[in-house]
């Protein structure tokens, strides 16, 4: 009992600390995964899952098909070996966006909320999948570095 307490305190002293030193001019995450947190699908059969994301106010991210070869497309992926295979992904069309400083610029972007339709095939059982969304966000004057966020979904194959 006493030993457990000692170990617990030591572990807390070592790892139970929060990082308060990182700062950014853009507060919070540029893109946030909203839902679903859990889906139940037929095991071994392709199933559609609609994944909902929210983009921070004032920011946009490139669509899956940006109009410039150098711009980074938004992509969704599921790493291999998690018991869930990504069969197909359908991305929404981007909205046309013009940077105020250049009325001739035509970007294809997502803003506010967007939905990615994923067709997945799950093995039987419970799989905690950490899928990934890769994107690059900007506002009308600045761009943030490309980023990959985790998309955590509990997939139950029955």
């Amino acid at each position: 009992m006493a030993m457990g307490l000692v170990l617990g305190l030591a572990a807390l002293a070592a790892i139970g600390q929060t990082d308060s030193t990182s700062r950014s001019l853009v507060n919070g995450a540029a893109v946030e995964y909203m839902f679903p947190e859990q889906v139940t699908v037929a095991a071994g059969k392709p199933s559609d899952v609609a994944l909902h994301f929210r983009i921070a106010k004032g920011l946009h991210i490139n669509s899956h098909t940006p109009k410039d070869e150098f711009l980074i497309p938004t992509t969704f992926s599921i790493p291999d070996g998690l018991g869930v295979h990504l069969d197909k992904v359908s991305y929404p069309d981007g909205k046309e966006f013009t940077l105020p400083a250049d009325p001739t610029s035509k970007l294809s972007v997502y803003t506010d909320e967007f939905v990615i339709q994923a067709k997945i095939v799950a093995e039987a059982g419970n799989h905690l999948v950490e899928a990934k969304l890769h994107f690059q966000a900007c506002d009308k004057n600045i761009c943030l570095p490309p980023k990959t966020i985790a998309v955590a979904i509990d997939v139950i194959g029955k």
């Binding site: 400083a101 690059q136 761009c143």
Partner: peptide, 10 residues
Amino acid sequence: WATWCAPCKI
């Protein structure tokens, strides 16, 4: 700047 930065291109 960066290749993927649209404002940089302006």
